[in-house]
């Protein structure tokens, strides 16, 4: 971790950047689970791959 007082182009501290990223990754994982469920339903209820 670089020192917390360093100023970056976006003006965020490293802690803030990592916090945003953690939430973005969690949201992406939720999107992934929903997409996997949608593909499962499409596989079951549609002629896709049959």
């Amino acid at each position: 971790m670089s020192n917390a007082t360093e100023v970056w182009p976006t003006g965020l501290t490293e802690g803030q950047a990592l916090e945003i990223h953690r939430n973005l990754i969690q949201g992406t994982q939720m999107f992934g689970v929903i997409a996997a469920l949608a593909h499962l339903l499409a596989y079951i209820y549609s002629p896709w791959l049959h």
């Binding site: 182009p9 976006t10 965020l12 803030q16 950047a17 945003i20 990223h21 953690r22």
Partner: peptide, 14 residues
């Protein structure tokens, strides 16, 4: 990867 937001503004990147 989280350090991306040190150089890319989240209001633009997200």
């Amino acid at each position: 990867y989280g350090r991306l937001w040190l150089v890319v503004k989240p209001t633009v990147g997200i």
